[in-house]
Simulated scan of single mutants.
Amino acid sequence: MVSSRSGSCEGIRSLGNWKIGLLFSETGVTSIIEKSQLNGALLAIDQINENGGVLGHKIEPVRYDPGSVDQKYGELSEKLITEHKVKIIFGCYTSSSRKEVLPIIERRNALFFYPTLYEGFEYSSNVIYGGACPNQNSVPLGNYLMENYGKRLFFVGSDYIYPRESNRVMRNVVRQAGGEVLGEVYFDLEAKEIDFAAVTKEINRLKPDAIFSTVVGQSCIEFYKAYLAASGDGTTCPIASLTTNEGEIAAIGPEASAGHITAAPYFRSIESSANQKFLEAYAKKFGTTVDVTSGCETAYSQVHIFARALEETGEIDTDKLREALLGTSYDAPQGQIKIDPDNNHTYLQSRIAKVDAYGEFIIQSQVRRAIKPDPYLVFPTIYDLSFRSLDVAGGVRLDE
């Protein structure tokens, strides 16, 4: 069902509003992340509409809940386009759900904003990729771990496209640095704490220097709790992730999350006026900032970037909007970002943070400028070298 908060299609049409689709799961195993992305998009829509909309017309969301079921994302994207005449869709968290939407978006020549980090090695002229790709998160995290903890890593992931491909990239980073992957194990998205008992026992036996986790959703929470139960210590052998965010850390709890590490473009703890304004607006609308995540910030920023392009084109036309979007910069809560005209991905900040005893991410290292996306890792050796010292190298000026 379309959320009642989206309004009727007749009302949207008669008011002359700009219709967009929101395709985020509010139920199911990935809802803990996708609800924060939905909230980020809704906040941006509210801000735009409160300022008069775009060219005097409000943005009106048509909203569906796929329930964290991959097939539903494809079915509902088709429904948004054919029944609701929506040509712009924001949505998806997992790569498997994105893969369901992609052929429909391309066949219908719609425009899809994907606000999530992913494994890279993809390009579509119908997608604006807003999350980090491997050179912006996997490479710096791998180098950070090997420089600060050691070169013996153990991989634990959820069993779908993103974790397997992300581990492939990380394995290459580790091997290029002379490191070793001691083990690689995958689990169902609905895995419980007890399901991780055997792998935590194996980790204790092998004693790696760090664990690289691509476990996502509710099972991520279960894994961290299982690691603590097995006497896993984040201060000596941390779980390092690209996906574990503030919302999940809140659910995991400080005791089980302290010392563990995440690499992302954005953390709620960033001290800047832009982030402070974002958090204040979010708290005013939703009553808390506990679930603000990098994916939430990306969805928020992508809606604002879309609105700017729409103001320039004056119409929802995929080809015209794409032309207006490519090369566009935006002062996001994470810092300045830009859509790369070379590949539809986004120049992003790169940060590595560690969870403190109170369950808050404390930034340990960051680049000085947004990094040009390299989704196909065309220059892996260059990036390996440039991230040796994250606070002084590895960034690319937005005007380069």
Results as ranks from 00 to 15, higher is better:
Val2Ile: 13
Ser3Leu: 14
Ser6Arg: 10
Leu15Ile: 15
Leu22Gly: 06
Ser25Pro: 13
Val29Asp: 08
Ser31Tyr: 15
Ser31Leu: 06
Leu42Gly: 14
Ala44Tyr: 05
Ile48Val: 11
Glu50Phe: 01
Asn51Leu: 02
Gly56His: 00
Gly67Val: 11
Ser68Met: 13
Gln71Glu: 14
Thr82Asn: 09
Ile88Tyr: 11
Gly91Tyr: 12
Cys92Gly: 13
Pro103Cys: 07
Ile105Phe: 09
Ala110His: 07
Phe112Val: 01
Thr116Arg: 00
Gly120Lys: 05
Ala132Tyr: 04
Cys133Asp: 03
Gln136Thr: 08
Val139Lys: 02
Asn143Met: 01
Tyr144Thr: 01
Leu145Thr: 15
Met146Gln: 12
Leu153Ser: 01
Phe155Ser: 02
Asp159Trp: 06
Asn167Met: 06
Asn167Asp: 09
Val169Tyr: 04
Met170Asn: 05
Val173Ala: 02
Val174Lys: 14
Ala177Trp: 09
Gly178Ser: 05
Gly179His: 15
Gly183Met: 06
Tyr186His: 13
Tyr186Asn: 03
Tyr186Ser: 05
Leu189Phe: 14
Phe196Lys: 04
Ala197Gly: 04
Val199His: 11
Val199Thr: 15
Glu202Val: 13
Arg205Asn: 15
Lys207Cys: 08
Val215Trp: 15
Val215Met: 08
Gln218Arg: 09
Ser219Ile: 02
Ser219Cys: 06
Ala229Glu: 10
Ala230Cys: 10
Ser231Asn: 11
Asp233Phe: 11
Thr236Tyr: 14
Cys237Tyr: 03
Ala240Asn: 14
Leu242Asp: 00
Asn245Cys: 12
Ala250Leu: 02
Gly253Met: 12
Ser257Gly: 15
Gly259Asn: 09
His260Ser: 08
Tyr266Asp: 01
Phe267Gly: 00
Arg268Lys: 09
Asn275Gln: 07
Asn275Lys: 11
Ala283His: 00
Lys284Val: 03
Lys285Trp: 10
Asp291Met: 03
Thr293Ser: 09
Cys296Thr: 08
Glu297Ile: 12
Glu297Ser: 12
Thr298Ser: 07
Thr298Tyr: 05
Leu310Ile: 08
Glu311Met: 05
Glu312Gly: 04
Glu315Lys: 12
Leu321Trp: 07
Thr328Phe: 00
Gly335Asn: 07
Asp340Ser: 02
Thr346Tyr: 03
Ser350Phe: 12
Ala353Asp: 03
Val355Met: 06
Tyr358Glu: 02
Tyr358Leu: 10
Ile363Met: 04
Ser365Phe: 08
Arg369Ile: 00
Lys372Phe: 04
Tyr376Asn: 12
Pro380Thr: 14
Pro380Ala: 11
Ile382Met: 08
Asp384Glu: 01
Phe387Asn: 12
Leu390Pro: 12
Gly394Val: 01
Gly394Pro: 05
